Simulated scan of single mutants.
Amino acid sequence: MKTTPVEELFNVLNESADLLQQELDCTYLEALAKTGENIFQQSILQKIESEWTGKRLKKIYEGLNLDHFSKEEIRKSFQLAILKGMKESVQPNHQMTPDSIGMLFGYLLNKFMKQNSYRILDPVVGTGNLLTAVMNQELNKQIEGIGVDIDDLLIKLAYINANLQEHPIELFNQDSLEHLFIEKVDAVIGDLPVGYYPNDIRAADYELKADNGHSYAHHLFIEQSIRHVRPGGYLFFLIPNGLFESEQAKKLHEYMMKNVYIQAILQLPESLFKNKQNAKSILIMQKQGEQVKQPKEILLVNMPSLTNGSELEKILIKMDRWINENKSC
């Protein structure tokens, strides 16, 4: 059976990563980052003791021409390899936003972001999969990406991911809730990490800090993102369904009323998640500004299964109609 381009490239990444993992005695994800760098630099950058391994790697790399693959094929191949590596990883923060959600994010940005060029920030960029999935749906526009993540391995994979796809993405390896030395962006996306932020001293700089105990990290990420988007800019977040039901929700709601207009809440189908407790929605907000108006009504949608073509089409038509009637700028 003939392999698809995604399978073909995955096989290259996987075999070379396996070889480097054994040779260098490192994790699969570390080896994947190394083989990605080798492919990008068109050279074996590591010291290989085994003559057979060196020859095999050389043959694999020489047989690969990245020009034969689209950006999206490269992203999907790299994603498959990362998912394989994450299965053997015990770190709970090594998670990836599902592809179907990435496609939906891209669709939404295409509808809301009408300008031909813009800057976009992902403050929880991880491996860069969500950010590049969005950028790959906007190939007719000039987009500059910015990604921030505290995990040095994930940011390394994001760096490789961006290089292989030839996307202009600036990456910062730091705590995203510390000071970000970036200019204001036109849009923010993010799969918000849910939980408590352990640094109470840093949290004290935020309006959304908890009155007692640790603050919610996802609340602080929302505030940090609003700080770094220009007036009139948009924010697209994957949020827990219970975001507005927690004991700290009142303060979050008051902060948002002062700073943004909620545009839409799209509740995703529960079938996308392992259990109902993990179910999430997409929250779309616009930062307040001189030319920005509050929508007549918030778009509230219960998304059908993303494989149900006819029902999905009805929802997308409804969303298009809402955007045409309510989008202020």
Rank of each mutant, 00 (worst) to 15 (best):
F112N: 06
G54I: 05
E170S: 10
A81D: 01
K47T: 00
H68T: 13
G145Y: 04
L139A: 13
G102S: 12
L164C: 12
F221N: 05
H179V: 15
K314Y: 00
L45P: 08
F181I: 15
V301W: 03
A162M: 11
M257K: 15
E8C: 05
M256P: 03
Q263M: 10
S176W: 13
E325W: 08
F78K: 02
I189A: 06
D67N: 15
E49H: 15
G232K: 12
Y206R: 02
G242C: 05
H179L: 12
E325H: 04
L300K: 09
E37Y: 13
E270F: 14
S100G: 02
E37M: 14
E88T: 15
E51N: 13
L235S: 14
P92H: 04
L45W: 06
K71P: 05
F244Y: 12
K296A: 13
I189T: 00
M1I: 12
Q263K: 05
Q91L: 11
L24Y: 03
E88L: 13
I39G: 02
I284S: 15
K209W: 08
N199P: 03
Q21H: 00
F237Q: 01
I317E: 13
A217Q: 07
E183N: 14
E37C: 11
P269S: 03
P193R: 06
G145L: 09
M96V: 15
S271W: 07
Q142E: 10
Y255C: 01
W322F: 05
A203N: 10
I44K: 14
I150M: 15
N275C: 15
L130W: 06
D25W: 06
I143T: 09
L299I: 10
P231F: 00
L164V: 08
F273N: 01
L9F: 08
G190Q: 01
D25Y: 03
S305C: 10
M135V: 01
T53P: 08
L29P: 04
I323D: 00
L64V: 13
N110F: 06
A249F: 10
E37K: 14
I82Q: 03
D152G: 07
S246T: 15
D211W: 05
L316T: 00
R321W: 11
G309S: 10
I48H: 13
D18A: 09
V12K: 09
Q95H: 00
E254C: 01
K59H: 07
Y206V: 00
N278G: 11
W322Y: 06
K327Q: 14
K34P: 08
E144K: 13
I74Q: 02
I323N: 03
K47Q: 07
E178T: 14
S117F: 13
H68K: 11
I226M: 09
N110D: 11
S89I: 07
A203H: 04
I44T: 04
S225W: 06
L32E: 00
